[in-house]
Design a protein around this nucleic acid. Sequence first.
RNA 1: GCGCAGGUGGCGAAACAGGUAGACGCACUGGAUUUAGAUUCCAGCGCCGCAAGGCGUAAGGGUUCAAAUCCCUUCCUGCGCACCA
Length: 884
Amino acid sequence: MQEKYIPAEVEAAAQIHWQKTAAARAVEDAARPKYYCLSMFPYPSGKLHMGHVRNYTIGDVLARFQRMQGFNVLQPMGWDAFGMPAENAAIANRVAPAGWTRQNIADMKKQLQALGLSLDWARELATCTPEYYRWEQWLFTRLFEKGLIYKKLGTVNWDPVDQTVLANEQVIDGRGWRSGALVEKREIPMYYMRITAYAEELLAGLETLSGWPEQVKRMQKNWIGKSVGVRLAFPYTLEGEAKKLWVFTTRADTLMGVTFVAVAAEHPLALHAARKNPELAAFIEECRQGSVAEADLATMEKKGMPTGLTVRHPLTGAEIPLWVGNYVLMGYGEGAVMAVPAHDERDFAFAQKYALPIRQVIAAEGEQFSLEHWQDWYADKTRAFCVHSGKYDGLNHAAAVDAIAADLEAQGLGEKKTQFRLRDWGISRQRYWGCPIPILHCEHCGDVPVPDDQLPVRLPEAVTLTGAGSPLARMPEFYATTCPRCGKAARRETDTMDTFVESSWYFLRYACPDNHSAMLDERVNYWLRDGVDQYIGGIEHAILHLLYARFFHKLIRDVGLPGVKLPDEPFRNLLPQGMVIAPAFYRDSGDNTKEWFNPAGLDLILDERGRTIGATLKADGQPVTVGGMEKMSKSKNNGVDPQQFIDLHGADTARLFMMFAAPPEQSLEWSDAGVEGASRFLRRVWRMVFEHVNAVAGAGHAALPDLAHVRAWLETQPARKDLRRKLHQTIAKVADDYGRRQQFNTAVAAVMELLNACDKVDRSTPGSPETLALTQEILEAVVLMLFPIVPHIAQSLYAALKPGADATRAAFPKVDESALAQDEIELMLQVAGKLRGSFKVAATADKAAIEAAALATEAAQKFLEGRPPKKVVVVPGRLVNIVP
RNA sequence: GCGCAGGUGGCGAAACAGGUAGACGCACUGGAUUUAGAUUCCAGCGCCGCAAGGCGUAAGGGUUCAAAUCCCUUCCUGCGCACCA
């Protein structure tokens, strides 16, 4: 064994060994329990970032631990390869998105391999290949025929200068990111997936996901947003014709307090009124400006204008003014809302602004209604009741809703209805680099799904991108075709699918990526028998991706594939991982923008306590401003390049630092000093093994004594007996941290503590065959306990400790229960809840004996001053609290 | 704006079921080894205080024998908001 730890050599050797032995290859084996460990696949942006390293290290730690526990582990990897960055790169660098993406995949694969992840590369897939997306198209046609995909108008961001649809991300302060033009909302036909048809099941399914964090389930529940309310109509007459304006409300009990009704700017009624009202037309035009992002809509100033039209109150028949409001969304519900200013904050602010009447219809016992103090008790459904509401006066919330709904229903003006906040999923994108939507438009037959024998609809790869619309729409060789039903000329759909569609089912395809005749086959039944065992990925995916994937999984289950049986939920356990953050440094550029500097190009100025109080740019020696901790990103230029880092310190150091610095779900602060600590620890373990191996060789014993002999010897060696207890306590703790708690930082800390204890004892007594045997037991366990996190160095050290042994095939160390037994334990002594000392009792002592021992302590005597205690609380195994 | 998290020494964090606050690591200080540096080793390290002791988990209040942990109010930070992935 070499004295010096050289990560590059150790890691290369281990990786070659794993490759030769196909250590990570996953093969179906009905006789063995499986463990499917899945990390969210990356977008091939070109370079791995630290968020990836963290994500995949967590996955690898769990995969390796579960292998040591005897499971048949599948840990696959692939590429979420369609998306906008490839198009942006294509425009900027005049390279085709396909080639750019493939090169990035090749580069990133090398980086992933350098990390020593135990991935089964034989199952690698990329979503931009026809072998993958053809099945997505195939499924699309099935869903289209079942009515689970349909067409309707949807609102998008339109850049009037670049003549293109923009993603929300491309709209900055209401303007197009390239053109700077004011963005407009525009309605275009799009295909939608009927996720609302699964709303109930998606909601109910959350209850079965015991392996998901409550936080994520709550977010999904609120996102689905089931509410029971009343759909009701305000009748009106337009050009002599009787019509109804429908709205939905969860507070029908406030119906008598309605003082106006508001519709969206795009609502037909608003457009009708605007024809004769130029001022209103101008306002509607103004409402068209800005992005469609909900956060923008919700934070903008609420504005409105009367249409001059009125609707009638459904119960009283009173005339109610109809307004246009910029906060009412056309694509949401009915595109109209009833307003009760007295009992809704947003309506209240709107009414104040435009001097609209405010009418109290809810009161509570002992509460005075005022415009400042009604929110406090309005929502308190146990106390509030109707007032100024005619026959409904005195009814509480539920009774009033029932009565009002019944009266509305009798007149055909409303009914109780369950509504979801969840909206159907618009999947059409007017972009090139995505999966083509397999639809043909025929003048005679309408929208016709592409027949199976014409699938896949291949995305042409030789294209020129201009930034204005999709090149597919300019390629007759792509879109010109004939209708499979009538044989006449037809036009192929040129929109592509939302890339969320590809990422909604890739985890199923890993089971059988080589099947060219079916989407999935019976291998799925093995790997997904009860779903993916562990899914790991960024918390930012808590709602959208995870909800879409759950939905898609159920769609595939219900379409039914021959020989395939899917569980109801795809992901049994979910571990959402926090971000990697680092300090960001900048200079103000004067024009309200900031120039960000990478820490690699800076000299940091530290105060006497080691805090960063300033920094200068190496290039010019001038100061830069120290910003806060930010997510590592291109825009803040605060990223650390994983590859450079691995070249410098090794993959194991990177993995150890990432696992030790914070628990997986928390954000992780990058720190060069912390990395130094991780590196130091690995050198220390290496040195301890080196010294031990040399000591064993130098002692020249024929063989180290066996366990029975060592146990007997320990009875005469209390310090070493304690050390062996500590070893087995540590094994129990580390196994629990890996398996149940998934807290790797405390697992590492426990091993460090064990080594600290080991060092202390060792120095106090000389070596002997028994000592060496105990140290051997400890070091073997330490190396195996660390193996999931730092597999390369552990591979080397295990072979050094046990020549010929392969750590990759080793089982996780077992706890020796007999080593855990303890004769005497220490308890804390509290007086009036304050810690005043401690005392020892026999481990078998009962409550009475513990209490007696506590009262006999000097500290207790001092505080009691001879008086009997008022109360004594005994918590066995922990403490005694004496209340004098 | 709405939804969901989080806030503990100089720093990253630990405290798992309401029961020893600060494990483990970093930084720092003192010492040893070394030609020097790096490395390594030993000791110290929440705040105030000579000490006894007191105070201390964002702020304020409450429940309890006992609160970082439970409840209420406020403040701050992060994530998501449907076309970034």
